[in-house]
Amino acid sequence: MQFVQLVISGLAQGCIYGLIALGFVLIYKATETVNFAQGELLMIGGFAGLFAATTLGFPYWAVILVAMAVTAVIGFLNERIILRPILGQSAVAIVMVTIGFGYMARGLVTMIPVIGTDTHSLPVPFRGEVFRFAGLVISAEHIVIITVTILLCGALAALFRYTKIGIAMQAMSQNQLAAYYMGIPVKRLSSLIWAISAAVAAIAGILLAPLTFIHANMGFIGIKAFPAAVIGGFTSLPGAIVGGLIIGVVESLAGFYLMEGFKDAAPFMVVLAMLVLKPNGLFGERLAKKV
């Protein structure tokens, strides 16, 4: 029972990692850049939601929409203004720009007088409720996280499968040049991808809020989502979620069964093993260059 309990809370936490990793993968697939500021977008989403919930008094579903909208706009502008001029530069340059954006976001948030460095809690309708089921105690927050993640994944899968824009995005991630020749507006789509991935981060932020509160440094969770993305292979959307779940469960189990301190290091040990044994991840595509 203990074990199942741990797995469930691990899965819930893993969904958060998975959603952040999903953001990494979306951007990586489309533009081959890694957004180190994904965690900060999550944080911005959290604060946008907080503003909508407390100051504007919106209901929960509207809070999610507001958070998504705000971060989507920020993600869009981020791609348009900061990243597009340096496309084609070295990976280090692009990574540094996203890190710089993350620093700025974190710093600017603490400058807003009412926020500062305090922690805030987001009012949610299901706070503190638990379900008892066959000897298990499952908190409502965990159930909401898992449900929303499943719904979101379904929505994204449908977007990529059935809509014209989704198919264009798929084409773009396979071969940008060819997509461009086919008349796909590659530039506009990559801005759009940034917006989508920022919105996904915002959802993760709102979902995470009941578990960890909202504060300026909550974005550091993004660092833990890297292992999730690597395990999934960095180019596979389902892989990101699976990787996130693996990391979440490993972390939860390691925190209980192993010595203190393993909880934080375990995800990184898993990812190192993965990189040494199978660098392309579980679902990554393996392409060889023709010389």
Binding site: I82, M96, Y103, G107
Partner: peptide, 22 residues
């Protein structure tokens, strides 16, 4: 409100970094 913010240094750091790379 600017001088008392703890985030002033990271903000400047981030801004410098972005400007340098750009």
């Amino acid at each position: 409100f600017l001088s008392e913010a703890t985030g002033l240094q990271p903000t400047v750091f981030g801004a410098v970094l972005i400007l340098v790379v750009l």
